[in-house]
Amino acid sequence: MSVREGWRPKIVAFCCNWCSYAGADLAGTSRIPYPASVRIIRVPCSGRVNPVFVVRALQRGADGVLVAGCHPGDCHYSTGNLYARRRLLVTRRLLAYMGIEPERLRLCWVSASEGERFAKVIEEMTAVLEKLGPVQQLREEGPP
């Protein structure tokens, strides 16, 4: 499959309610430009992100998945982000093992004051995904 003209990678970003969602919000209110290809889903904590969310997103049209949570030590629930890190580390390695580019999954720490950081992460990830192209492995055939 050749990459369609004008194709831009889609990112689904799971943002923790307490830090990263506010960080993304700050990026917006501070008018920091970042690629429009991101769709944000607010979750109570990065620890809420079930690995199957990641695969489901990649299956249904996302080219990359970002999970953004509070910095270690800052979790609203004290340790949710640290459980998330373990779980997503393993998830990422399993994705790679099963033939999905691991770069499509990223976990990052974004605090409520880090609007710029959020924008930078999206920018970096978009650049990576532009190189990788669309997810080919999990797409299903549509109606004939």
């Binding site: 690995p51 199957v52 489901r56 393993v90 099963m98 492995q137 999990l138 797409r139 299903e140 055939e141």
Partner: peptide, 24 residues
């Protein structure tokens, strides 16, 4: 419906990926 009953590459991937992670 995490695992749709339809059998295709994506659903098989989800099945085996999830099973492996749940016993990790």
């Amino acid at each position: 419906n995490w695992l749709e009953r339809e059998v295709g590459v994506a659903t098989q991937f989800i099945f085996h990926f999830t099973r492996a992670l749940h016993v990790a």
